[in-house]
Structures are given as C-alpha cells and as structure tokens.
Design a protein around this nucleic acid. Structure first.
Lengths: 141, 141
DNA sequence: ACTACTCATTTGTACATACAAGCCTAGAAT
DNA sequence: ATTCTAGGCTTGTATGTACAAATGAGTAGT
C-alpha cells in the first residue's frame, strides 16, 4: 500500500515519519560506497571542512543530541577517520589522513543522493518542501 | 541553533529526519495521558475501529514492517489492551475491554496532537505539506 | 584556597524501527 | 499421500537516536 492511500495520510506524525524512514533508506544506499551511514558521513564532512570543530557545534549543525554526536565520533574514531583531542574542558575533532582521503568519495555520494531524490520531484517543489520542513521543525521547539 | 540556520538546511535527508524527530517528540507528549507511544496508540486505534484486523494489514496502513507490528502488538498484549488469536496461518488482533475503554482518551490525545501542531502552521500549508510528504514517500519506493 | 556552580562531554540505558532467518500452516504438484 | 512452495508471522540481532545521570574542567563567590 502507498502512504497516500493509508488511513493516516493526513496525519503529520505519520507523514513525517514515513518520509524520514524512506529518505533514510535512500541515503543509506547512497553512502554505501564509503561504508558510512548518512549521519556519520555528514559529521565527517563537517569535520573535513572545519578541522578542530567541537562536538557541541556538530550537534548544533546536525540537530542531533550531544550524546548522539559522541557515539558518531566514537565510530569514526574506530575507523580511524577522525581523532579527538581534549583541550581543557572542550574536545576538538580532527580528520585523519585517511579521513581526508575520503573527501572526494564523500562528495560523490552526496551528489548521488541529491540526484536520486531530485529525479523524483520537481526542483522547485523539492526546495520548497525542504524549506517548509526545516521551518516547521524550528517551530516545534 | 535552528534547523533553518544549519549548514544542511537544504538537504532532504537532514530536513526529513530533523522534522520527524521533532514531530515524534511532540506526539510522544500528546499521547502521554494514555501511557502509549504514538505508534502503539495508532495501532490500537486501528484495531478498535476494525476488530480482527490482521498484522499485515496494520503494517500496510501504518507503513511499518511486519516485524515492527509484531513488536507493537506484543507490548499492547502485555498491557492487556489487545489480544491475538491464531486462525490457521493468519493472526487476528482484537481489542480487549480495557482497550475499548481507552477509545475516548485516545481520541482526545489525537485531537491534542493535531491542535498542537496546527497552532504552529497555517491549516492549508500544513495540509499541503503532509500531502507532499506522503507523495514523496510513495515515490521513494 | 575552598566551595559551589556551570558547561562540554561521555556513559548507561532505553526506544523505535528494520533486516534476515526461521517457523507454521495452507494449498499445489507430483 | 508426500513433498514442495508460498504466505504470514515471529525471533534474533542491529542501527539510529535520545534522556538522564556521571565526569571533569574551568569559573565565581566567599
């Protein structure tokens, strides 16, 4: 059955969750080439762009809780893609050589993901939707 | 930081997930009075409306995997809100007395959830968004 | 200098969900 | 009848995420 045919096709809870799960699945596919989950990949990309970023800053930009960020970094550290250095009460996250080497592949995955969702929906409509979703998310405190 | 201010505010992955998590949180609050998570509540409401529904049908309408449905039913059974009866190779789910007694409260929660999201966003815009999200979800195979 | 307080991070634990493999039961093929 | 197959459900296990409590390091009050 399609989501649009479901009993709950007018329910925000239903729509938001269903969409997110499907998008997650698509993203998972797109980032398979680098063997990272989408959130790991986004975090790594941020660190590559701004080496020495703090976890709290990552949490802000990715809109994830600090504890989740810790968990994501842990895994990237295991894979030796980033390293943490503790400076006083804060932690700085740096990409490793191996992490840096991954940048082009990451960008490729990013592009792939973007394309595979773009071909399903009109560019303008898509942009509108994404903006609306962010807006509503912000209102939800 | 707000989602609209994030580095990734144009990314579908980011927008869909951020929104879904926030909506989930709001829904969680709304259904606290009946001490059920939103998905448990929706499942129960479906069973109340159509006693004897099969898990596969629930999975279809709620757009969740069969295994997730099993897990949801298990918990509702523990709470003695529904019961399962195996008829040949299929399973039928029925509400219990206790489950039926919960119907008015469930409807109240449902209304609350709807209202608390409605006061944040224009009715028409909201309806549009929900419809668009379902549509896109369907296209994401 | 001692205490209390705050902030950034981590840890233990829990929840929502899914995938893959297994288990029954019903019906089909022989 | 016996075996094969398919469908519906369940089970083991894994992923993504968060909350609440714990840690540890600066900071302010006295």
């Amino acid at each position: 059955m399609k989501a649009t045919e479901s009993k709950y096709n007018q329910c925000l809870y239903f729509a938001a969750n269903t969409l997110a799960r499907k998008v997650e699945k698509l993203a998972l596919e797109s980032w398979k080439p680098v063997d990272l989950s989408p959130s790991h990949a986004y975090l790594l990309m941020m660190v590559l762009e701004q080496p020495g970023l703090q976890p709290c800053c990552l949490a802000d930009h990715l809109q994830l809780s600090p504890s989740t960020i810790t968990r994501l970094i842990e895994k990237l550290e295991e894979k030796q893609l980033v390293s943490r250095s503790t400076e006083g009460k804060m932690t700085l996250v740096y990409p490793s050589e191996k992490g840096m080497a991954l940048l082009p592949a990451l960008k490729e995955c990013s592009k792939d993901f973007h394309n595979s969702s773009c071909c399903l929906i009109d560019k303008e409509e898509r942009e509108n939707m994404v903006a609306n979703m962010c807006n509503l998310a912000d209102k939800l405190h």
